[in-house]
């Protein structure tokens, strides 16, 4: 039995990303020594935790060759409903709030999953539509008002500010999500079959893999994670607003693309995803530290994403061309 070998080629992307992160960190550190301090790193990871959780769900969706633009709205809606509940029943346990948010998200995700998997609506259209509906509902349930810090119980806010085993709860939850996702995506048949469906849908159909169910599942899980993230979000910022997380889906997709998740399906590893998320987290965290105006953030993110996508295409073209050269004709 051959042992698993470390194949450089397969890990090139992640290595490159890692080097880039190290170089970037070194550069930032040289400009501002505050960067590599415990407190700054803690805040970096705390701030990146929610993004990381969402990126897992988006990865599942992207693997099935889909996309989900509705998650910003789902975050807002789940966050709003759970904080309204807390405002009304301050004694409710934080765990119940988390559950509530997750279920709401899963419900919204299921609707999208149904539209995409059962009714063959294009993912972009289905999620654009749901994005509006859910965003509108968020404003409607709140009556356009905010839920502010003083209306939330301390227990609720502690979801995001408290610590478990010396780590911030958000980071702990993110780690838990990653552990579960790692198990699901690498060690269960369902998880691996999601990859198979994205990698070659026709072949999957021939081997009797239930494509529709798996696509549905991907969107439902994405929704559930977005709902969970919604609760974390409002707990962290101690305020729930109608326009919470507006456009956040773009950041999440950006993290996935940077992390090597292929938009044409079938490819995406958690190791890469973590690096992609961290890179985005560093960009968000470090730009203010080196006196770059926060208004540059969006532009830089956009350029990074486009560069990552175009690089992928170029690399792919190059390998294809070499494969043709090797053909003996």
């Amino acid at each position: 039995m051959a042992a698993r070998k470390f194949v450089l080629n397969e890990n090139l992307r992640e290595l490159g990303l890692l080097m880039f992160i190290i170089a970037l960190s070194a550069g930032v550190q040289a400009r501002n020594p505050v960067f590599l301090t415990v407190s700054n790193l803690t805040s970096l990871f705390t701030n990146t935790a929610i993004l990381a959780i969402l990126a897992v769900g988006m990865t599942l969706v992207l693997i099935t060759r889909g996309i989900d633009l509705s998650i910003g709205a789902t975050i807002a809606f789940a966050g709003m409903v759970s904080s309204l509940t807390v405002a009304a029943y301050p004694t409710i346990s934080p765990a119940l709030s988390l559950l509530q948010g997750t279920l709401i998200g899963a419900f919204i995700g299921s609707i999208i999953g149904l539209l995409v998997a059962r009714f063959n609506v294009l993912p972009i259209i289905a999620t654009l539509g749901l994005m509006n509906i859910v965003r509108g509902l968020t404003f409607m349930v709140s009556g356009g008002k905010w839920v502010s810090s003083y209306q939330m119980s301390t227990g609720f806010k502690a979801i995001a500010t408290g610590k478990t085993l010396g780590l911030n709860n958000l980071v702990v939850i993110a780690i838990l999500v990653y552990a579960l996702a790692w198990y699901f995506m690498n060690h269960t048949r369902t998880g691996r079959r999601i990859y198979a469906v994205g990698s070659n849908p026709e072949a999957a159909a021939i081997s009797g893999i239930p494509k529709k169910r798996l696509v549905f599942l991907a969107y439902a899980l994405m929704g559930a994670l977005a709902g969970l993230a919604g609760v974390l979000w409002v707990a962290k910022f101690a305020s729930a607003q109608g326009d919470t997380a507006m456009g956040y889906e773009l950041q999440v997709i950006a993290a996935c693309i940077l992390g090597g998740v292929s938009i044409s399906g079938g490819v995406g590893r958690l190791s890469g995803l973590i690096l992609g998320t961290v890179l985005l987290g560093i960009l968000n965290n470090a730009l203010p530290l080196i006196n770059v105006s926060p208004f540059w953030q969006m532009g830089i993110q956009g350029i990074t994403v486009l560069a990552a996508v175009l690089t992928n295409v170029m690399v792919k073209r190059n390998t294809d061309r070499n494969a043709l050269r090797r053909r003996a004709i």
Partner: peptide, 23 residues
């Protein structure tokens, strides 16, 4: 008709995976 993004072993066993344990 393969899954280009998966490993050889997975391609062989996709659809009739080798599993263990109650989970």
């Amino acid at each position: 008709t393969c899954y280009p993004d998966l490993t050889v072993a997975e391609n062989i066993f996709m659809g009739h995976e080798k599993t263990s344990g109650f989970m």
